[in-house]
């Protein structure tokens, strides 16, 4: 068990707004081993990014809170660390890459300055050494002419190059865990392919664990070992990518998989789509969050919350009708309006 790098148990995240409490994340469990990649998929508002923010303890003070849950990272209880201790972990042992490379770099500092800042914050290093390290990191992430590039400003870089710089900053302190929040969503497919290849090769070299947050199942199949499917703040299903692809059990996962357009989707065929839109989390939902969009929903679904059940080793589903004794029969084409 010693190679488990991150363990999250029953994590809840609440946001206070003027009128109500938004339960953004309910009871998320994560176990991540060394060198493993975990994907978190779901639609906007499903709580993917909030989970990541909570792991980094970057929730807005006074608004976001973690009423329940435990986060153990590398033997440390993250939630009980002082702010100062947390600062030593953040950016050093856990690093993060954000979605939008256009806004996550500071436009008034050179790219080199920004890498040096990350390095010098966490490691005893002279300015000269840090500069050397910055050049080395740019080389690692495949930026040509790093000696020249290190003196340039973010606006002189393209989107893909900026994301490479972000990766260079994130990896400059050799983190044990890298959280990538939609790292390729803003990029073109060709550049996306380059960045994913780069992340894979760097993971191989440095034994980093990765949490990949995305809404693109293609990226999950490409990168991940395990996957968590989130819907409206809940984990609806989790397991290895192979099980989730071959034997998905939750009706939401079915809908998600079906509405992906692949090369087997016939041109002109009607596309499966989940009707309706996600619920408003300001109002408490007594039953299953997916109940009002679920074509299989029965009465119990709108009154009682389903509990997560481990149906096979490592494959967990939260659905009233997917238990060890009971299975739901998957109908064809239910998601076609």
């Amino acid at each position: 068990m010693s190679d488990v790098i991150l363990k999250v148990e029953n994590l809840d995240v609440h946001f206070r707004s003027s009128a109500s409490i938004v339960k953004a994340v309910n009871g998320v469990n994560i176990t991540l081993k060394k060198k493993e990649t975990l994907g978190i998929v779901g639609e906007s508002g499903s709580g993917k990014s909030v989970t990541a923010t909570a792991l980094m303890r970057l929730l807005p003070k006074g608004i976001g809170s973690i009423p329940n849950g435990k986060i153990t990272f590398n033997g440390k209880d993250i939630l009980s660390l002082s702010d100062k201790e947390m600062r030593d972990v953040r950016g050093n042992e856990i690093a993060m890459i954000f979605q939008d490379p256009m806004t996550s770099l500071n436009p008034v500092f050179t790219v080199g300055d920004q890498i040096e800042e990350a390095v010098r914050t966490h490691q005893q290093m002279s300015k000269k050494e840090a500069k050397k390290k910055a050049i080395e990191m740019l080389k690692v992430v495949g930026i040509p002419e790093p000696e020249k590039r290190v003196k340039m400003y973010p606006h002189e870089f393209s989107g893909g190059m900026r994301q490479r710089v972000m990766i260079a900053i994130a990896l400059s302190c050799n983190p044990k865990l890298l959280i990538a929040d939609e790292p390729t969503t803003a990029l073109d497919v060709t550049v996306q392919a380059q960045i994913l290849e780069l992340m894979k090769s760097l993971q191989e070299k440095n034994d980093t664990s990765i949490i990949m947050i995305t809404h693109d199942l293609g990226v999950v199949w490409e990168m991940c070992d395990k996957v968590i499917v989130m819907y409206a703040g809940n984990t609806v299903e989790s397991g290895t990518v192979e099980t989730i692809y071959e034997n998905p059990l939750h009706p939401y996962t079915w809908g998600l998989l079906e509405s992906q357009i692949t090369k087997n989707t016939l041109n002109g065929d009607k596309l499966p789509a989940i009707p309706g839109s996600p619920p408003d989390l300001r109002n408490p939902i007594p039953g299953c969050n997916f109940a009002d969009r679920c074509p299989y929903a029965k009465e119990i679904c709108s009154t009682t919350k389903p509990q997560p059940i481990e149906v096979e080793l490592g494959h967990i589903v939260s659905c009233h009708f997917q238990t060890n004794s009971n299975r739901l029969e998957r109908k064809e084409r239910v998601y076609i309006e």
Partner: peptide, 25 residues
């Protein structure tokens, strides 16, 4: 060809031959 090969995998078992383009536009 390069553009099409950059489409992410369609399932975890997909083995994709990828033509990686160098550099940017």
């Amino acid at each position: 060809k390069a553009l099409l090969s950059a489409i992410p995998k369609e399932n975890p078992f997909d083995k994709k031959e990828r033509i990686l383009l160098e550099g940017d536009v």
